[in-house]
Amino acid sequence: MAKKNQQQPVGPVAGVYEIDTGTCALVRDTLTADGWIIEVNGVPSSHIDVDDPTQLDFEYMRWIAGLVRHHKFPGPRLRALHLGGGACTLARYFASVYPDARQVVVELDGALAQLVREWFDLPRAPLLRIRVGEARAVTETLTEDSRDLVIRDVFAGALTPGPLLTLEFTEHVRRVLAPGGIYVVNCGDTRDLTLAKREAATIGSIFPYLSIIADPAMLKGRRYGNVVIAGSDVPLGEDPALARELLGGGVPAQVWSDERVRTFARDAKPLRDT
């Protein structure tokens, strides 16, 4: 097992590395010229194509990227907060698509953050800052109206920590978001969709507009997987071009607008700090 140290070679080197929360395996993706998979404690966490930052291998990341690109943000440049860092795949993508964006990635594991900086050519501050800390604690310290986009993609194993699911936390996100901004979460759920419905109910209690993106089999309760849920104070996910783009992906997906999402979550109770 490789240990983190100051003599670590620059650039990705396959192996298993010690990090603060356990181990990180860096695995070569043989299907791409210079692709890498990052596994944290045995769970696939991120994929990066070193040659092409716009290449997103995980479907849910493509869905988030599409939702963001088809949204009209009011500010002159994108200000993004990523809760959950991993390999900074989405932050790297947005840095390519929005070259003047200002992004902060919050990562709990400081050793992992250091390794990712060493392995991959990430933009430097002020374009991209990696802040080591717990996602909720950091969010609660941020200035009101200081972000246009907040993405929550935090997992401990297969689950998102409970404090990041609640109404009270979502209120902090709403405070941090500027008018016209988007809050996007990656919800991992089982076939009964209980968590996705409760997350939609929670976010819908704070934001007047909702959207969901997932593949039809997931939304029909036929398998477990990812559901992307988003909230805003303006309509989102209604661009027909987004719907066409999602249908044309490797895993075709649907986008639901506010009315359909609220129908989906109508019997679910918001999650609370209890």
Rank of each mutant, 00 (worst) to 15 (best):
V154A: 03
L210C: 05
P123Y: 04
D273L: 12
D34W: 06
I130F: 14
V150W: 02
Q7N: 08
A101Y: 02
S45G: 13
P208N: 04
P123C: 07
I130L: 15
D233F: 14
V40Y: 08
L81H: 07
V251D: 00
Y98S: 01
K72S: 14
L112I: 08
G180P: 01
S205D: 01
D233Y: 13
V105M: 08
T21A: 14
V43A: 07
T23S: 11
D233S: 10
V105K: 07
L83W: 06
D267Q: 05
E18H: 11
Y60M: 06
V27A: 08
I212V: 15
L165T: 13
I38C: 12
K269H: 11
E39R: 14
I213A: 12
W36C: 05
P126Q: 07
I151V: 15
L108M: 10
G221Q: 04
G85P: 09
Q6K: 14
V132Y: 05
V43Q: 04
E39I: 07
N41F: 13
H47S: 09
E171W: 07
G66K: 02
V154R: 00
K3T: 15
V251E: 00
N5K: 10
K220L: 15
Y224A: 14
L246P: 09
R272F: 15
N5R: 08
R79N: 02
T141G: 11
E18S: 13
L122T: 08
A80C: 12
T160Q: 02
F155D: 00
